[in-house]
Amino acid sequence: MPPDGYAWWYVDGISRDGEQQISIISFIGSVFSPWYRWSGRRNPEDHCCINVATYGRGGRWTMTDRGQAALRQSRNTFEVGPSKLTWTGRQLLIDIDEVAWPRMHRLKGRVTVTPSAITSVELPLKQDGSHVWRPFAPSSEIEVDLNQPGWQWTGHGYFDANFGIHALEDDFSYWTWGRFPTADNGAYCFYDATVRDGSELAVGLHFGADGSAEVIDAPPRTRFARSKWLVRRETRADPGYTPLQVADMLDAPFYCRSAVRTQVFGEEMVGVHEALDLDRFASPLLKPMLAVRVPRRAGWRFGD
Rank of each mutant, 00 (worst) to 15 (best):
residue 154 T to K: 13
residue 161 A to Y: 01
residue 180 F to G: 00
residue 172 F to D: 05
residue 170 D to H: 15
residue 78 F to A: 14
residue 199 S to I: 06
residue 107 L to M: 08
residue 141 E to W: 01
residue 162 N to H: 15
residue 107 L to D: 03
residue 135 P to H: 09
residue 171 D to Y: 03
residue 114 T to N: 01
residue 78 F to H: 14
residue 177 W to F: 08
residue 180 F to I: 05
residue 186 G to V: 09
residue 117 A to V: 14
residue 151 W to F: 13
residue 166 H to N: 12
residue 150 G to L: 12
residue 203 V to W: 03
residue 192 D to T: 03
residue 112 T to D: 00
residue 109 G to H: 07
residue 199 S to L: 07
residue 80 V to G: 11
residue 78 F to K: 14
residue 163 F to D: 06
residue 121 V to R: 02
residue 173 S to W: 07
residue 94 I to F: 04
residue 97 D to Y: 00
residue 130 S to N: 10
residue 113 V to N: 08
residue 113 V to L: 11
residue 181 P to G: 12
residue 77 T to R: 15
residue 110 R to T: 15
residue 86 T to D: 00
residue 140 S to K: 09
residue 104 M to E: 15
residue 142 I to F: 00
residue 130 S to P: 06
residue 166 H to K: 15
residue 93 L to G: 02
residue 186 G to Y: 08
residue 197 D to P: 13
residue 131 H to Y: 05
residue 198 G to H: 10
residue 167 A to D: 03
residue 142 I to E: 07
residue 141 E to N: 06
residue 157 G to V: 15
residue 163 F to T: 12
residue 127 Q to L: 09
residue 140 S to G: 08
residue 130 S to G: 15
residue 128 D to R: 11
residue 88 T to L: 12
residue 136 F to Y: 15
residue 192 D to Y: 12
residue 172 F to G: 11
residue 127 Q to H: 14
residue 98 E to F: 03
residue 193 A to V: 04
residue 188 Y to N: 05
residue 161 A to K: 12
residue 163 F to W: 13
residue 146 L to G: 02
residue 129 G to F: 12
residue 174 Y to D: 09
residue 122 E to R: 08
residue 83 S to K: 05
residue 134 R to E: 05
residue 92 L to S: 08
residue 197 D to K: 02
residue 85 L to A: 04
residue 190 F to N: 08
residue 174 Y to L: 12
residue 101 W to E: 00
residue 128 D to Y: 10
residue 170 D to L: 13
residue 134 R to D: 04
residue 186 G to H: 09
residue 175 W to P: 02
residue 148 Q to V: 14
residue 167 A to N: 12
residue 93 L to C: 06
residue 202 A to V: 05
residue 88 T to M: 14
residue 124 P to W: 01
residue 143 E to C: 01
residue 203 V to A: 03
residue 193 A to P: 06
residue 190 F to A: 05
residue 124 P to V: 10
residue 122 E to W: 01
residue 102 P to R: 09
residue 109 G to D: 06
residue 121 V to S: 00
residue 92 L to C: 10
residue 105 H to P: 04
